[in-house]
Amino acid sequence: MTTISIWRWPTPNGLPPLPLVAALCAVLGAMWFTASLVEVDWVHLVGSLGKMAAFAGHFLVRPDWEYLPQLFDKMLETIEMTVLATAIAIVVSLPLGVLAARNATPHIVVYRVVRDLLSLMRALPELVWALVFVSAVGLGPLPGVMALALVTVGFMGKFFAEAIEVVDHKPVEGVRAHGAGWLQVRLFAMLPQALPDFVGTVMYILDHNLRAATILGLVGAGGIGYDLVMAMRLFQYDRLILIALAIYLVVTLLDRLSDQLRSRIIHGARA
């Protein structure tokens, strides 16, 4: 029988590449076997839908407008923590990013050490670092900022380094050939090329940090999180809905801002 198939993959024999198929099967198989371990139970999942709906019903309340001034204060504190932590992280991450980029590092050993340092910073989530710093310096926004900044350096340093690693080598050579020094080459040839990526990273991280800052209050590290948890525990849904809306509003505004800023930087100021 000569059935000529219409469909084929762009491989020599027309079949999907074997390693890909094998990897896919392995992942699916692993998920199948472990599903019972992590208690993914379809019956339970569907059965919970009713409870979810009942819970959502609690939000159909008149918002507690009296709470607005305090919400505003706490939200402002959250934003301040976010911006401050991100700003500190940018200043620290830029040099670390250069040291952790294969094509910009002064030595391969420095590259390895900085990379490992960055992953150490990222290893624990903000909340855990916040616990550590709350124990060290006491309650309030300060340990929150410290925890946020630390984890952010871990991520931003890595992202910056990767942005530097993909810059075009030709302009780098162009600047180097004219006798620019080590730092000058990095500042004038690599940095401008990596800038759009940097801005993208910073905007993403601001977004992420804002959300991270909202939960740091959980462990007493300042921000809206404390109010959020208290409202949840005391079943104050009239406050909860305001807090949730406020967070959503700020995150959305930030997103708009980041879109504008990015297109400005990528396409130039007047384009």
Binding site: P171, R176, G179, F188, P192, Q193
Partner: peptide
Amino acid sequence: RSSVAMVFQQFNLVDRL
């Protein structure tokens, strides 16, 4: 290098500057 300048086939300018 400060006394030897170079001009490249692909210009090698920093595009974004």
